[in-house]
């Protein structure tokens, strides 16, 4: 048991799944193992703040607390093609540059209001095939996916039933159940 809990401590829990931490002890590297993306600690921190701006901490946990930025990285690393990955890396720094241009501050130095304002600006042009917009569209989609599929939402908030044990084809639409069939 000791060995098992030791291994558990080594894993990073992102929204419920365990991700292997980076083998590299080198400082300045991303905290999880990535096969295709080359991400440093600064970029990871930037991504964390972007996801936190998308889904902030309120009276419930936000993206950072759920490690959704690591989930985004994991998905982009394993489930997106090279083009997406390239846009993702470029777009991430483009966004930071835009922040500097708009507010004379990096994204992470900007206020929460400024951060939100910046992302809202991107909302309108999400379909544009520019690296920054593509980065934003991927990040937002994956952040939302990670959130809705997190242990917090699925299990703690009871939004997902593993064993429904029933089917009602005429349930009242007003009945308060949070789970979608």
């Amino acid at each position: 048991m000791k060995r098992r809990s030791a291994i558990k401590n080594l894993l990073i829990i992102a929204g419920g799944i365990a991700i292997l931490p980076s083998c590299s002890q080198e400082s300045g590297k991303a905290s999880i193992q990535l096969n295709n993306l080359d991400i440093n600690q600064n970029q990871e921190d930037l991504l964390a703040e972007i996801t936190e701006t998308i889904i902030p901490k309120t009276d419930s946990p936000g993206a950072k607390a759920l490690n959704l930025h690591l989930f985004v990285l994991k998905m982009v690393d394993d489930c997106h093609d090279k083009d997406d990955q390239k846009s993702f890396i470029n777009g991430l720094s483009e966004l930071d540059k835009l922040s500097k241009k708009q507010f004379s501050k990096s994204f992470n130095e900007a206020s929460q209001a400024q951060r939100t304002q910046l992302l809202q600006l991107l909302e309108s042009d999400k379909e544009t095939n520019d690296d920054m917009y593509r980065f934003y569209a991927i990040t937002k989609r994956r952040t939302i996916q990670g959130f809705l599929n997190s242990k917090y939402v699925m299990k703690d908030l009871k939004r997902y039933e593993l064993i429904p044990g029933r089917y009602d084809g005429y349930a009242s639409a007003n009945e308060i159940t949070k789970s979608a069939s």
Binding site: T53, I55, P56, T58, L119, K140, I144, L148, A173, S181
Partner: peptide
């Protein structure tokens, strides 16, 4: 089938509220 329509056009607290109260 009838599922939830999540409004994902927003950012921040309003997005989160929408996701939690679909």
């Amino acid at each position: 089938h009838r599922g939830f329509d999540n409004d994902v056009s927003k950012v921040g607290e309003s997005l989160k509220n929408g996701l939690l109260n679909p």
